[in-house]
Design a protein around this nucleic acid. Sequence first.
RNA 1: GUGGCUGUAGCUCAGUUGGUUAGAGCACCGGAUUGUGAUUCCGGGGGUCGCGGGUUCGAGUCCCGUUAGCCACCCCA
Length: 444
Amino acid sequence: MSFETLPGFRAFYPESSARRADIFEKWRAAAHSFNFLEYDAPVLEPLELYIEKSGEEIVGQLFHFEDRGGRAVALRPEMTPSLARLVGAKANSLKRPIKWFNIGEHYRYERPQKGRLRAFYQFNADILGESGASADAELIALLIQSLKAFGLGVEDFKLRLSDRDLWLFLLAAEGLDAAGSAQVLGIIDKLERNSREKTLEQLATVLGESAAVFMTKVEAVVAIRDFPALVEYFTALPIEGTQTEAIEARLAEWRVLLTALDNSGMGEFVEIDLGIVRGLAYYTGFVFEAFEASGEGRALAGGGRYDDLVGKLGGQAMPAVGFAMGDVTLGDLLEKKGLMEVAEAGPDFIFIIGGVAERAQALADAACLRAAGYRVEYPLKEVAFGKQFKDANQRGARFAVIYGSEELASGVFKVRDMAAGTERDYPRTDLVALAESLLEEGQD
RNA sequence: GUGGCUGUAGCUCAGUUGGUUAGAGCACCGGAUUGUGAUUCCGGGGGUCGCGGGUUCGAGUCCCGUUAGCCACCCCA
């Protein structure tokens, strides 16, 4: 009987494990630099948690089953519902703003394809308890920094920024209620993927005869790329009274957001693009997605404001904004750009052991250096000298230390710098101090 | 869930119109090599040719099914 890895799941041999560790380290370092705190939640959750957030349709996309206690459970497909529950449960005692992040594996029962697997890692970051656009700016700055940390620049990726609130003004002007608006946003979300004819057809089912006129408005809005044009378009809308003030207020929020991003040095990555509205209906304000600069591929990261969700899932209402970044699309991009760290570091020291008699001293020294935190390797069986050096070379050792009868007889610590090819004797005094100076300064 | 393409050693691949015991390079292990590493030489392990069925005297090769991978659609939290 033979077994294979389940579809859409990956095994991590040391090389890919090293790459994954590198990605996690950079994500974590970025989050820490913005003073986000790490949290975690169960991988297995009540199925109901996801149905409550996303509706019954979600069940078909989940790994779910009934546990032996008769509970309907699911492997987490995303982090946000768990986060909302955690925060909601302690809402009154948590210092705000709450800035939290998580790096964890998520599971979705979907057909694997380019940039999408069934098990993948996500970096989630959220700011809760602050409704102002400064929070959106802080979060977006973290998102951009998290990508820059890999050496990616403006020529590699961009962040497409949009706003569902602005869309709602437009839709209200068309006389649409909440349900109709949600429907139209769903159509706009697919604008890029569908033909103009198909989009028109879909709009007509909601708007009837005004669909064609509305379509031209949509095309004008989606073409806007800079803030002055955005202001011009929305202040010129034929809308009166309190709505006009609301639009003014909304544009002021935009100003706060864009100014903060410019001041943080992130402005160059941001591109206004109201074509982004994001699929599910719970987003309430700014929404954004990061893409490869060429526009190819799936989104590198996506997020937005969700001011109503915590109240719905956690009981206690709380404004929130967050993003998620996956390891699969990012890994593909890093690979393509040649920015993927490939190998795990080699050992600091490999011991070359002459024979059974010399092994005792080598083991004692290895234990000493290992206790001090150095990476030390030695052969587990008796092997010819030449082979040991060859092996040390192949394993990428920084230094080889020779344990032969001559060295032990004369009481020296003979160290060979594998890269330089130099070899020197050192007195057998403080090995840890010697190791430290060798690794810092090398061998003269 | 739907469709297209592809499955021969760990990896990259060869394998003639269907014909005996399925090969190469790389990688791995051992040796030449009992005190010095990237070269060289020799040897070795590793395959139910993705799996199942069919056609045939005979199938890695042809046909059907299935499974997995890749890609696209649906969906994308």
